[in-house]
Design a protein around this nucleic acid. Structure first.
Lengths: 216, 216
DNA sequence: GTCTATAATTAGATAGAC
DNA sequence: GTCTATCTAATTATAGAC
């Protein structure tokens, strides 16, 4: 998702060392992507302006064009960046059994998913924001990131958890919704119920609540 | 939420009958509100332009200003309209017991809520869109619509379902998320899983799935 | 009441100086 | 690579004709 910069490594810059230049490039690019991730998550694609992103990244709007071309490409880069982190944080360790008790393994996997949902509400926001409209952003999101993850999860649910094939969509969306919503609307939850869902004890409470609900 | 129009019922229009004029006013206003509900739900507050709303309503942008003043006021009117329908569709019949079996009553209430979520994904979209940012739209939404509903539901969950006070937020958001997400991201679900969540049988399947999950 | 025209802002994208 | 200045289009809100 980062533009090929081999062409810009010209003779002039080669003297001072192409590595330093491309390092700075990547630093700036990364700052922009990070700011974009935050903004797109909180305000959605339409609610986010490239000027705001540049401002959060501590730079200017022109640089976004230079590094990414269009707002759409930047959005994809932000999504890539998010899913990269998600992969490391979640999917890799979700299928690793810890205990001899199958059901307790499953419960702990669900607890892990709830903890993840508290850490990365962005995932849920992105899913809801983009999942409700059939457009090319959704197409890209599914083929690039969602499908491989869903299929890995499906295998796990079929084999380790023993769900029936036709229940998979219900399990998947039920779990995702049950685990995530309370954190995704944290400001509302605070104001409406008086409790802060992002407090460590509350996260654990919710994790256990959902885990015991799904795996009795 | 409709602007007081008593002042515009002047002497000139009184001749042709104030009722006819105010009837037309309300029809136009209602068309705009209806279009606004659709657009705000699907695209969010920022992603929706008043011109698009006017176009869907079959009128022009100037009339929106005339009837509602600002985009923000129109958004409130759209939310009011949604919650009015929700009240009729859901909250009134949720607490009416049908069977002698307490657990089956609870299950049927949950099934009803799932069916409602399939019919009104707007509710979920609104909740997620506005619940993630602490701003004055959220304040208004909570104090005007969410709090009274949440307290009514809390009573029901405490008394009829026998949940503990400190579990209420977890029950509430778990149920809301579990019931709604699959319908809220219907296009994604179709493309990702191959099943259409809005098909009648699928709605019932999900309703039963969630109901049996929560009330074993 | 309804509509067209337009003002004032803001958006994404571009050009060019450094 | 970075930044400022600017173009074009779209936005909300306003003014005024009918």
């Amino acid at each position: 998702m980062v533009r090929d910069d081999s062409k810009s490594e010209n003779a002039a810059s080669a003297k001072s060392g192409g590595t330093a230049r491309s390092k700075k490039r990547e630093e700036t690019s990364a700052r922009i992507v990070h700011a974009a991730r935050q903004s797109f998550a909180k305000r959605g694609f339409h609610g986010t302006s490239t000027r705001d992103i540049a401002s959060v990244a501590g730079t200017n709007q022109g640089l976004i064009t230079y590094h990414f071309g269009t707002k759409d490409v930047l959005w994809r880069a932000a999504a890539d960046n998010l899913f990269e982190e998600i992969g490391e944080r979640l999917f890799d360790r979700l299928t690793q059994p810890q205990s001899a008790d199958e059901r307790e393994n499953a419960r702990e996997s669900i607890r892990e998913f709830v903890r993840f949902s508290a850490e990365y509400p962005e995932f849920f926001w992105l899913m809801v924001d983009e999942g409700k409209n059939a457009d090319e952003r959704l197409d890209w999101l599914i083929s690039t990131h969602l499908r491989p993850r869903f299929e890995a999860l499906s295998d796990y649910m079929l084999n380790a958890l023993g769900y029936a094939e036709e229940d998979l969509p219900h399990v998947y969306y039920t779990l995702a919704g049950a685990a995530s919503l309370i954190f995704a609307v944290a400001p509302e939850c605070r104001q409406l119920t008086g409790i802060d869902p992002l407090k460590k004890e509350t996260v654990e409470r919710h994790a256990d609540f959902v885990a015991r609900l799904i795996i009795t």
